[in-house]
């Protein structure tokens, strides 16, 4: 189907491809075969198929990643509540569904279902990340018609999920204020690929003297990532007249992303998460399957 599709040709290895023949003999008389495939070639193909699936139904898929307990599920709960309020007040309806990845337990999916929102739980057992196959299986349990956004809550882990394309369109990474503002520098692979970083549990900022939001942002810029950084809290403010901090900005961002996504679809294009982009820029030939 696509033995050497060139999806991994970068400046760093282009010369190898242009010089070497495909087959050669080694000094021991063995056969050397040039391959030049991504180490996760099969996963990436499955991911591309998932993306086609999403695009056919015009559903924006967002991969939510963070350390364990940074507030991914709480963010989803607050998002559902905010969307409900918007629907009641303005009749402006956004439909979402959630795919929950966890090592064990159905807890997170149940928290979403308790808010009358469809949720599929994937329990990964020992796997510390979701892959495109797991997401594909979950997709078959979901009705994609009439959905605007699918959130995929990845396994809480700042390392492994970053390497796996799920077929989603956008990466959103959460960094809770209790984790420290140096985390983007310590987990560069994850934060380099974020289309949006949410500084979560911002309601706790007044109690912490060592989390500097501008430092966190600077560490993200040091990864050459221009994506926005928002502060957000899933907790209701003590002053009940106030909105939950940052939620409106987040919802506006989501609406903007849906708009841009649909514009791309109209042009016959899709949207690729930040991590995958550099590969595309460096790959000059069309990708056929």
């Amino acid at each position: 189907m696509c033995d050497t599709c060139g999806c991994n040709v970068t400046e760093g290895n282009r010369n190898l491809i242009e010089t070497g023949g495909k087959h050669a003999k080694t000094s021991e008389g063995n056969e050397a075969v040039e391959v030049l495939q991504n180490l996760l070639h099969e996963n990436n193909h499955r991911a591309a198929h998932n993306r086609e699936h999403f695009d056919k139904h015009q559903v924006l898929a967002i991969n939510l990643m963070s350390s364990p307990g940074s507030g991914k599920t709480a963010l989803l709960e607050a998002t559902i509540d905010a969307l409900n309020t918007i629907r009641i007040n303005t009749n402006d309806k956004l439909s979402i569904a959630v795919i929950e990845g966890d090592l064990e337990t159905e807890n997170d999916a149940q928290r979403i279902r308790d808010r009358n929102t469809p949720a599929i739980q994937i329990t990964t057992g020992s796997a510390c990340h979701l892959d495109a196959y797991m997401v594909h299986d979950a997709l078959h349990e979901l009705d994609l018609d009439n959905l605007d956004i699918i959130f995929i809550e990845n396994v809480g882990n700042l390392v492994c999920p970053a390497s796996f394309d799920l077929g989603h369109h956008l990466n959103v990474t959460l960094l809770s204020v209790t984790e420290g503002d140096d985390k983007p520098a310590k987990y560069p692979v994850m934060f380099r690929g974020s289309n949006l970083t949410l500084i979560t549990k911002a309601d706790l900022l007044p109690f912490l003297d060592d989390f500097d939001v501008s430092k966190a942002e600077k560490n993200i810029r040091n990864l050459a990532n221009p994506a926005p950084v928002f502060q957000i809290s899933a907790r209701k403010s003590n002053d009940s007249s106030l909105e939950k901090q940052g939620i409106n900005e987040w919802i506006e961002w989501l609406k903007q992303q849906i708009k841009q996504y649909k514009t791309h679809l109209k042009l016959g294009e899709t949207v690729l998460p930040m991590i995958q982009k550099d590969h595309l820029h460096n790959s000059s030939h069309p990708h056929e399957h």
């Binding site: 991994n8 970068t10 290895n13 190898l16 983007p184 050459a224 991590i275």
Partner: peptide, 28 residues
Amino acid sequence: SKLICSACGAWQTSLISGDEMLLKSVEL
């Protein structure tokens, strides 16, 4: 963790290489 330009200090840079994960060749 510092993908910044050594000449002008800008962070607005593009990666030329460094994120490869490639099965280059096999011997059989």
